[in-house]
């Protein structure tokens, strides 16, 4: 039974696309068939983060409008064969997406894959609502700052009212992914603590991804961090998050670098 997962946040720049790619690659490495779908029509990025930008021929809009078949637009990842991407169009805007067309594409994707992961555009308008409409589950990407938390709260309200599940009287399963978390700054009370965010949003915690250069480096070489640097702290957080999405019960911990005594000595000297 395929699961449709939307990665959303309301606010821009919090790490939706990075998280979509990293979670998609993590789930695919466990042997499941995964497609990541870029819904950010007009501002597509997912193809860059996945390193597929030179292979885009057809895109989501072409398939929605019936100009191309789904199989023509899907791009298979070169590093992980169970991972595919359905890119967005950069030249069109979100008005080109029709709700019937999106419904048809989602039905087709459900048949082909175990996981359909939709990368939502920022905002709460049509594009974001179309991306979430068919979702069974949602990952709400939030930074530990008040503006991001409030926008996530707004998105949770929309997930509870503007999705197909909500219209049928069911609930979209919601998970909080806290990204760009800096334990040192949190300790100095320069950002909201995990407890603060959880208290405000009151949805289960899927994972805490630390602020890290590894994420930036991976994006720049066009690879999800879970493929490019699988042993890094953020990648470990995404791998654990993916296992929780698959139903495993794992304790969520605040990620900290474990350093040996000698590492510590050398770091201090440097």
């Amino acid at each position: 039974m395929a699961k449709v997962l939307v990665v959303t946040s309301g606010k821009g720049g919090v790490g939706k696309t990075t998280s979509t790619a990293a979670l998609g690659a993590a789930l695919a490495q466990s042997g499941q068939n995964v497609v990541v779908v870029d819904f950010d029509v007009g501002l597509r990025n997912l193809d860059l983060v996945m390193g597929a930008e030179r292979r885009v021929v057809f895109d989501l809009i072409n398939v929605v409008q019936g100009d191309a078949r789904l199989s023509q637009a899907l791009i298979r990842d070169k590093r992980c064969e169970t991972l595919s991407i359905l890119p967005a169009s950069q030249t069109r805007d979100k008005d080109a997406l029709t709700s019937e067309g999106v419904a048809r594409v989602m039905d087709e994707l459900r048949e082909k894959f175990d996981w359909v992961i939709c990368d939502s555009p920022a905002g709460i308008e049509r594009g974001a609502q179309l991306a979430m409409y068919h979702a069974d589950m949602a990952v709400i990407v939030t930074n530990p700052e008040v503006s991001s938390v409030r926008d996530s709260d707004r998105i949770i309200g929309l997930l509870d009212s503007k999705t197909q599940k909500a219209e049928q009287g069911e609930k979209v399963e919601k998970h909080l992914l806290l990204t760009r978390y800096d334990p040192a700054r949190a300790a100095r009370k320069e950002m909201l603590s995990v407890e603060d965010v959880l208290e405000i949003l009151s949805i289960p915690l899927l994972g805490i991804v630390p602020e890290s250069e590894d994420v930036l480096k991976s994006s720049n070489v066009g690879a999800p961090v879970t493929l490019a640097a699988p042993t890094s702290l953020p990648a470990r957080a995404y791998f654990e998050a993916a296992r929780r999405l698959s139903g495993e019960k794992l304790e969520v911990s605040v990620p900290v670098e474990k350093r040996g005594f000698f590492d510590w000595l050398f770091k201090r000297d440097a």
Binding site: R154, D160, S202
Partner: peptide, 8 residues
């Protein structure tokens, strides 16, 4: 019964 979210 539930939380009233931002914007509602």
């Amino acid at each position: 019964e539930q939380t009233v979210r931002s914007g509602q």
